[in-house]
């Protein structure tokens, strides 16, 4: 039996070419910085600024991927710090957001609407605007120059989006499932654990991934301002170490960037396996 394409998904040959051209254009635009970055990491430093500029590396090698560890001995530590800060931030966000999103999705309480609105409003300020009050806050809490200095503000600014995302997802879980569990004698907590959590797993995964990525990318501003201990510095700050006194070691910098995001990519790859769709099939109707 041949797999037939539904009528609505059938296109003429020139439409298909058009679609692929569009996709290609978009991908080139998005990916070319990465490609060039990668090619730069393969070039010997001396050849980088040779003119005429060559896109394809001559005498390309992966040498920068090994020398980068020697030029900046603390690099592994920075990668670990980044992962650690983002990981802890993600876990903390999930622990706070999962119950909160459920409450916002299911319970009616005074101030629910304004509170949700306030979360959105908070998101309009970036952490950068609030850096000075945050600094005073961190100082009075005595967490400057610790991991917490980077985790706490990160968490605070990641929670609103996470709540909105997860609340929307939880609203889609049929209410009858909870009512059925309630009729069968299950407590709220039992229902939450046995029914809601498993069904919300894809939503929680999406939140975990976005939170992790955002934590990874936003930590540098907090690291710059709230931390001066080299040992706690995350990856983005670590990359500055490749800016030497006279020259920037571009090829190692690029190599380090790729190595630095690799662990994050691996984490996300494993998380996304939980992104199964159609989990609620057969629940109602």
């Amino acid at each position: 039996m041949s797999t037939s394409t539904p009528m609505i998904n059938r296109y003429k040959w020139y439409e298909i070419i058009g679609i692929y051209c569009g996709i290609a254009l978009f991908l080139i635009f998005v990916l070319s910085p990465f490609v060039e970055g990668f090619l730069v990491s393969l070039k010997p430093l001396s050849r980088l600024f040779s003119s005429p500029y060559r896109f394809w590396p001559e005498h390309g090698s992966f040498a920068a991927y090994s020398t980068m560890w020697e030029s900046v001995p603390g690099f592994a530590r920075y990668v670990f710090n980044s992962l650690f800060i983002s990981g802890v931030a993600t876990v903390v966000v999930l622990m706070l957001v999962v119950p909160a999103a459920y409450a916002f999705a299911r319970f009616r309480f005074p101030g629910r609407g304004p509170l949700l609105g306030a979360f959105l409003a908070v998101n309009m300020f970036s952490g950068a605007v609030l850096i000075i009050p945050l600094f005073r806050l961190m100082r009075s809490m005595g967490v400057l120059n610790t991991y917490w200095a980077m985790i706490v503000p990160g968490v605070a600014f990641l929670i609103p989006t996470a709540i909105w995302l997860l609340r929307t997802y939880m609203l889609r879980i049929p209410k009858e499932l909870e009512e059925a569990a309630y009729v069968d004698g299950a407590s709220r907590l039992y229902t939450f654990r046995r029914v809601i959590l498993p069904l919300a797993m894809p939503g929680i995964t999406v939140v975990a991934i976005t939170t992790f990525i955002n934590a990874y990318s936003q930590q540098f501003i907090y690291a710059l301002t709230f931390n001066s201990k080299t040992d706690y510095m995350p990856l983005p700050i670590g990359l500055f170490a490749y800016f030497g006194r006279q020259e920037v070691i571009w090829n190692e910098l690029m190599a380090a960037s790729f190595v630095g995001i690799a662990p994050a990519m691996i984490v996300i790859f494993f998380l996304q396996r939980h992104l199964v769709s159609g989990l609620t099939a057969g629940a109602v109707k």
Binding site: E176, V183, D184, R194, L199, L279, G282, A283, V284
Partner: peptide, 18 residues
């Protein structure tokens, strides 16, 4: 409900899909 000794079958079945 459970202490009333009742059980209910919902129009939408409300089965636990997982």
């Amino acid at each position: 409900p459970v202490n009333r000794g009742i059980a209910m079958v919902f129009q939408s079945y409300a089965l636990y899909p997982h």
